[in-house]
Write a protein that binds this DNA or RNA. Sequence first.
DNA 1: ATTTTCGGAAATGTTGGACATTTTTGTACG
DNA 2: CGTACAAAAATGTCCAACATTTCCGAAAAT
Lengths: 225, 225
Amino acid sequence: MMDTMFLGRRTTEDDTVVEMLASAIRRDISFSVLRPDQKLKIAGLRQTYGGSNHSMRETLRMLTSEGMVEATNQRGFRVTSATEEDLRDIILMRREIETLGLKRSLAQGDMAWESRVIAALHLVSHADGAVQQDPGDLTALEWDEACRELVMSLVAASGSPRLVGLTAQFYGQARRFRLALLREGRIDFKARKTRQHRLRDAIVARDERRALQALEEEINADLQR
Amino acid sequence: MMDTMFLGRRTTEDDTVVEMLASAIRRDISFSVLRPDQKLKIAGLRQTYGGSNHSMRETLRMLTSEGMVEATNQRGFRVTSATEEDLRDIILMRREIETLGLKRSLAQGDMAWESRVIAALHLVSHADGAVQQDPGDLTALEWDEACRELVMSLVAASGSPRLVGLTAQFYGQARRFRLALLREGRIDFKARKTRQHRLRDAIVARDERRALQALEEEINADLQR
DNA sequence: ATTTTCGGAAATGTTGGACATTTTTGTACG
DNA sequence: CGTACAAAAATGTCCAACATTTCCGAAAAT
């Protein structure tokens, strides 16, 4: 009842064992410690992450619903593949879902929403600077979390819980590719900065066309290879 | 060989216990035998549907990923709510996802795709007639399956597995409302027939605008109260 | 009589071990 | 070289038990 070689919780209280396991494995998939298509043998996972037979299976089932893990009938679990095609598919979904969410937020969002977006943009800007100086895994996680909060804030006022859920889900699936780009130093922070400014200006002006375009370019930037 | 994602099978061979449980519970949720917001106690479910503690939890976790069941941290599972607001949200998502899928299918679909759609339309037309004469649960299931196959065929050539998966998922969530409408005799089969004709004509003519409009009206029809 | 508090009952989350079935692997044989 | 078969590994399923949390109803207080 104490096997914890991993900590790092940021959100709130991760109560259950399953959620702790899930966040640990999720993180290792995001950082490609567990590689795409890798077979996930419950015995081996238990030795690495702890937890019981039951907990591990339930954890994998949970990660399956997030799209990080795939289950095949009598052949166990494996890390979801991450090919170029997967990336294009994920980007396609992100474009559709997030632009729709932003469009609806722009139409319905009040001042509280707007300020949340502004705050998120500010944090992203700060995290951008931090991760440029120190691209270690820890700052990378904080940077990613800032980016995630920005995306979630954009669709937060859409009034559609399912749309918000899908935004989170697909951002999670895209995370692996983003962090790979970051690690390879292939992210153009200068371009990001200008895009962030354009997005901010368009949102405060409630200019739907320009805001959607800025968001779309931001998403497409994750497609670079 | 192929996998799993989420869907509603009818009578095919479901290998594992979990999948048999899942399809049984899924069906009972669709027919409101298990009512919205109803608490799902594993002990009670085991007595009704069989299966072990472990299998039942895994089943519920799986249904959670389909959106049929919700899990709260230390408070177990319950049937996903089905309010007017939920319906509007689901319809919103179906409109976006399915119209995008059809748009892409129209652009990329070959003759095999087109014939699959035509076949699906034919079966739906037949099932419409059957369910008008005998609105029993069994014919209702076949009618629903025909409608499902139609929707899936429309997006089948979109080239996006995630989009196809979401189409299946949201159709599954909308199923409860559809079947409720059917049971209450509130479905306008005459209007359905004309819509089906318009959809067919627009697709064989590859008229994107008219096809999308026909699909949108078809989806909106499920919103009637 | 209404509200608060407190305890027990019920339900959930977790664990370990056991067993049947299936898949995978290794090896001998044709 | 390929096939077939047996051994080994892995998965899916189940049971029994315990820890923790939540739920519910009765007693106490105002």
